[in-house]
């Protein structure tokens, strides 16, 4: 029994058994997709169907990266579990690695489910390589949001963490054009969006369903945010440890 593998398995099981994950990361995005393509917004054409499918998939993965990871980290600390884990031979690194593997597996699962359901609802046709590349993009593009999740995970109380992360999550979704296409947003929101990671996250996938490649700006903004969040997260964690 390899401890790291056992830990990864445990993390995956824990996310799957979390009813909030199933509701927020699978049910809600699919419901959104159905409503905004079939009920409210008919006649926008295939391109919109593929575009919006990418939006809700990004929305789902972003949510689980920030909320599932962040809130769970706070919970584990407030319940004394993280402290208890430090007494076992499993290193902090392995524990963290297992969390990331668990999250990534869950993201792959969400992407497959939402892509599949979405393509059935609206008969979205993309080439195999487009499906794969979009999936890969969303998976890799989720890293800055996982780092943001670890930042949320540094908060003292579960209530604060879930409140704050909800606001961040919804803000990122709206400003990033995941609910409504950027083109119909007011000008000032469009200019803010250029600085928002979620816009560049979605943008990469939107480009790909149109047959283009993600722009260099998309990639560099996401990498920039990843670095900022990781550095901040490590810095704050160090500071908190000194206090104890």
């Amino acid at each position: 029994m390899n401890p790291v593998w056992m830990q990864c398995k445990a993390e995956i099981l824990r996310i799957f058994r979390n009813p909030y994950f199933v509701f927020w990361s699978l049910f809600m995005p699919i419901l959104f997709y159905f409503l905004f393509t079939n009920v409210f917004n008919v006649g926008m054409g295939d391109e919109w169907h593929a575009h919006f499918l990418m939006s809700v998939t990004c929305f789902s993965v972003m949510g689980s990266a920030i909320m599932t990871l962040g809130i769970r980290l706070v919970e584990e600390r407030t319940k004394g579990w993280s402290m208890f884990m430090r007494l076992t031979p499993l290193s902090d690194g392995a524990y963290f690695f297992a969390k990331m593997v668990g999250q990534t597996m869950i993201h792959i699962f969400s992407i497959i489910i939402i892509f599949t359901v979405g393509s059935f609802i609206n008969n979205v046709t993309l080439t195999i390589s487009q499906w794969l590349l979009c999936g890969m993009w969303i998976l890799l593009g989720s890293f800055p949001f996982l780092a943001l999740g670890t930042l949320v995970g540094l908060m003292k109380k579960v209530d604060t963490a879930s409140g704050v992360s909800n606001v961040i999550y919804m803000g990122l979704a709206i400003l990033g054009g995941m609910w409504m296409p950027m083109e119909i947003m007011p000008k000032f929101i469009q200019s803010i969006a250029q600085w928002i990671p979620s816009f560049h996250f979605g943008s990469g996938a939107w480009e790909m369903v149109r047959g283009n490649a993600p722009s260099l700006v998309n990639i560099s903004v996401l990498i920039g945010y990843l670095i900022v969040f990781v550095v901040l997260s490590i810095y704050i964690r160090r500071k908190q440890e000194v206090v104890v």
């Binding site: 445990a10 824990r14 058994r17 319940k79 004394g80 579990w81």
Partner: peptide, 10 residues
Amino acid sequence: LQEVSMIDAL
């Protein structure tokens, strides 16, 4: 230890 609650979902 004191005040360690059980891990959830397992």
